[in-house]
Computed example of a mutant assay.
Amino acid sequence: MSDVKPGQKVLVHAYKHNENLYRSWENVRVLEETDEVLVLINEEVLITELNGRKWKTNEPAIWFFLKKSWYNIICMFKEKGINYYCNLASPYVFEANTVKYIDYDLDVKVFNDHSFKILDLKEFNRNRISYNYSRTIVETVWEGIDELKKMIKDKRDYFNHDYVREVWQKFLDLKEQDEM
């Protein structure tokens, strides 16, 4: 476990395989950390792109960073239900008040009905060659896709809407206590 504390605001940095920072999130709030996962909350978080473009998130979200898995999962609360965005990425490290990970291009977008799309395959294949991803990394990324597909199909763990709502309620309860 790291030095991170519930309520603490942290940065999140996504890097490419060549170690160049390409996206940054500011003022992401820590909900909790366990032996398996770091849970963050996004509410109007400022995102800065590599090209300097800045924008804020539109909807509240829970961001699960699994300590041993090669993906992280964002659960977004939209008007029509919970949608998910899964980044295929290295396990994170926490240093200098920053959650850091390497993004391996592929993403899985999951809709409220648990249908999904794999995104950015062309980018993954292009970067696999230009950044010279090892065979182990390529295989590990695809294993991550397989794990995600099983969880999505079974509607389990982070893809269980009831579980996600419970985590969000925990955040709201803690937020209410802090405002008193």
Rank of each mutant, 00 (worst) to 15 (best):
K122G: 06
V30I: 05
C86P: 01
C86Q: 02
R29P: 02
F64Y: 15
H13A: 10
M180K: 12
E33Q: 11
W142V: 03
N58V: 00
I118Y: 04
L119M: 14
N20W: 02
D113L: 10
A14V: 01
D105Y: 11
M180F: 09
I74D: 03
V138N: 08
V10P: 03
F77T: 02
Q169L: 11
N97K: 15
L106E: 05
L66Y: 13
Y71M: 03
A14E: 14
N132Q: 12
K54C: 10
R135Q: 12
F77M: 00
T48D: 01
L11Q: 10
D154I: 06
N112A: 15
A89Y: 04
F171A: 02
E26Q: 12
N72Y: 00
C86F: 04
R128P: 01
V167A: 01
K150M: 08
K100A: 09
R29M: 13
F111C: 06
T140Y: 04
N20R: 11
D107V: 04
S130R: 10
C86W: 09
L40R: 05
W55Y: 15
R135D: 13
M1L: 04
E19C: 03
K80P: 00
D173R: 14
E49L: 13
Y104R: 04
L174A: 07
F159C: 05
R128V: 01
Q169E: 15
T34R: 03
D157W: 13
K80W: 02
